[in-house]
Design a protein around this nucleic acid. Structure first.
Lengths: 216, 216
DNA sequence: TGATAATTTGACCGGTTGGTAAAACATTAC
DNA sequence: GTAATGTTTTACCAACCGGTCAAATTATCA
């Protein structure tokens, strides 16, 4: 892994800090909507308002930009799941997990789409992360959910598929935004749709996991 | 819109039928995993086992192949929703809708990913379809769901977000397949995961929509 | 201020891309 | 069989792609 020239300077400068930030911001824009292969360096350069060789002075390759983004985003993307607390009450934990994930879909849709693109295209750059850190975290939280079910606090259910369901329903509002807005129509496409979604999903998951008489 | 040379022949031949099918099959493969811009004609040609100019004899441009695929798939993709029957019992209608959507995710994952890619990238080729036919169909079915709620057959809920939830949870198993398998691990990544998902989702939606005493 | 280090640019390169033209080849109808 | 029709290939093109290089420019600091 050869370093870009900017990283070979004697000290890290203010300009490096700023430009790298600027580039990653632009790259996020483009990668999120076109995927890795559909993105060109020229496009990123244009969005960032700088020339291509200048961009390559800070990141040696397109891969390097993509990796920097993935690394930065992957971590923060899993934060809501990490906060999932075994000691809390199941209903409020699940409720606030949904809420946090929905907030991320609303506030960081590009980050969500960056991942969605990557996964859709077979996760060629993050397979290890999926099978390593991500799997471990999910395994851990699945165990928490299972213990809740065993203790009779929520209905018995497959904890993995519960997590998948929360992921997919919430991220849907970032990844499939165009479709959601198209179907809801102009009038209902304001920010209110996130409130409506939150209300619906909380109802669905909370009462969907409640224990009932005939409950299997 | 200029026609490809194959369409300019006097009659439609057997070879045309076969080759166009072959090409669309290959194109589905590639578009589904790389998106429109990430796909090259050469790639499609290689998968189809024919030369690029030969391919362009049947479809004049990359756009033409993509559009042919979208048109073909969009229709069949909405079939499960069309079958949604106002006269049926809500629980069994929702249950079988989930089941059908999951079967499609299992049996036609490429078709699902083709759409996912398209939507993710801003639906540049199907915006009209989203706001037209798709919206109309959803509006119609949302009205059905609303009437069920009004009649006290299911809990009150936002019918649009209910439909989004069913879409996202089921399509997740096609679109995010790599992630699902990564998280579940080798052992649990057999076809059984679709059975598990079906069981979980039916439980979630059915009891999530049941009317209860404290019901909202 | 001037020297040094850091940044930016323009010109360029080999490979790939979407697509074309025309000739060679295969199939079909008579 | 042969002529017309339909199909495939070879050779090609201009634009674009990821990336390099060296020179020009700008910022930093003694």
């Amino acid at each position: 892994m050869v370093l870009p020239r900017a990283a070979q300077t004697q000290r890290r400068t203010r300009i490096q800090e700023e430009k790298e930030e600027l580039i990653l911001e632009a790259a996020l824009d483009v990668f999120a909507t076109h995927g890795f292969r559909g993105t060109t360096i020229d496009q990123i350069a244009e969005v960032a308002g700088m020339s291509k060789p200048n961009l390559l002075y800070y990141f040696r390759t397109k891969e390097a930009m993509h990796r920097a983004l993935i690394d930065r985003v992957l971590d923060s993307w899993l934060d809501p799941l990490r906060e999932f607390d075994a000691e809390g009450s199941p209903v409020s934990e699940i409720r606030s997990y949904i809420r946090r994930k929905l907030e991320m879909a609303r506030d960081f849709p590009r980050e969500s789409r960056l991942f969605a693109n990557e996964i859709l295209q077979g996760a060629p750059h993050i397979e290890d992360e999926l099978k390593g850190p991500l799997k471990s975290l999910v395994d851990e939280k699945a165990e928490v959910i299972r213990s809740w079910a065993k203790a009779g606090k929520i209905a018995k259910c497959d904890p993995y598929h519960l997590i998948f369901a929360i992921w997919s329903t919430t991220q849907h509002y970032a990844d499939f935004d165009v479709q959601v807005r198209g179907v809801l129509g102009e009038e209902r496409s304001g920010d209110g749709r996130f409130e409506d979604a939150a209300r619906f999903l909380e109802q669905l998951f909370v009462s969907g996991l409640e224990i009932r008489d005939g409950g299997a």
